[in-house]
């Protein structure tokens, strides 16, 4: 089955970009292609100017999947250190002077897990487990950080805390973020750029610059401007949804994914 058709997208280095769209529109497939987990049939994907497989081989790809995907037999600290324990060749290849992986314990402390370093995943709440997954990906200082609906399984209050921590981490460990979400509000709150997708087969409908000043919380938040962007995104999503479901032939064509994290 064709999951993506005609995706032509440039992602600015160091930016926070969200992918938003209905289920089955190929958001996750696009993310997997950037992670080098899936090969496009046609077209090309480039991460930091190189093929995803080369970027992954240098441990430049930080992946936070939908589930925390922690190994139950490892402690919190050992789970977060996992990226540094596998594929050691990448660490030796890292150019001298280039920033090495961050101090894992420091990152864990930053996301509030300093007290549970030696705990096992089953002793943690879902939100805490997801923070470990976040720390695991960020501590290796990846060139791109890919998040596939990472907060979809936690409650709204936890979700808000996780968003704040993600932004704080992004500030300290600057990287290009690609964030898949179902939530329009979440996309606007977090992103510099929101990519609206539709499908299947997946295609990019629009690329929207959010343009709201940061931080976007508390009294700093301009709710009216936020709603304006949200409304625009919602309108585009529903228009795209209507177009996809009215004309089943819409959007067919050769698979051509082009993605660049410049």
């Amino acid at each position: 089955m064709q999951a993506l058709a005609g995706v032509d997208l440039d992602v600015r280095q160091g930016s926070f970009t969200s992918l938003i769209g209905p289920s089955g529109c190929g958001k996750s497939t696009l993310l997997r292609a950037v992670a080098g987990l899936e090969e496009p049939d046609g077209g090309s994907v480039a991460v930091c100017g190189r093929p995803p497989s080369a970027a992954a081989a240098d441990k430049q790809v930080g992946l936070v999947p939908q589930t925390p995907a922690l190994l139950p037999w490892l402690t919190v600290r050992a789970n977060a250190e996992l990226p540094q324990r596998v594929n050691r060749r990448a660490d030796r290849r890292r150019a001298a002077g280039a920033p090495g992986p961050s101090d894992v314990v420091g990152v864990l402390q930053e996301v509030g897990l300093g007290a549970v370093l030696d705990a096992y995943p089953h002793e943690l709440s879902g939100g805490m487990q997801q923070r470990v997954a976040l720390a695991r990906a960020v501590a290796m200082r990846p060139g791109v950080l890919l998040l596939d609906e990472p907060f979809s399984a936690v409650d709204e209050i936890t979700r808000e805390a996780l968003r704040r921590q993600l932004l704080a981490l992004w500030e300290h460990v600057p990287t290009t973020v690609l964030f898949v979400t179902h939530s329009v509000r979440e996309a606007v709150l977090l992103s510099d750029v929101v990519v609206v997708m539709a499908g299947p087969p997946g295609r990019v409908v629009d690329v929207v610059e959010v343009g709201l000043p940061r931080p976007r919380a508390g009294e700093h938040l301009d709710e009216r401007a936020l709603h304006a962007v949200e409304d625009r995104l919602r309108a585009e999503l529903s228009a795209a949804w209507a177009a996809t479901h009215a004309d089943p032939a819409a959007g067919t064509g050769r698979a051509a994914g082009r993605e660049r994290g410049a």
């Binding site: 992670a35 080098g36 999947p65 190994l71 996992l82 990226p83 324990r85």
Partner: peptide
């Protein structure tokens, strides 16, 4: 678990590492 497998693959862990870890 497929998600844990995806994480290890995104790090280009070797087959032996995936097996062992």
């Amino acid at each position: 678990p497929p998600d844990a497998l995806a994480v290890l693959r995104s790090l280009r862990a070797s087959r032996l590492e995936v097996l062992r870890r």
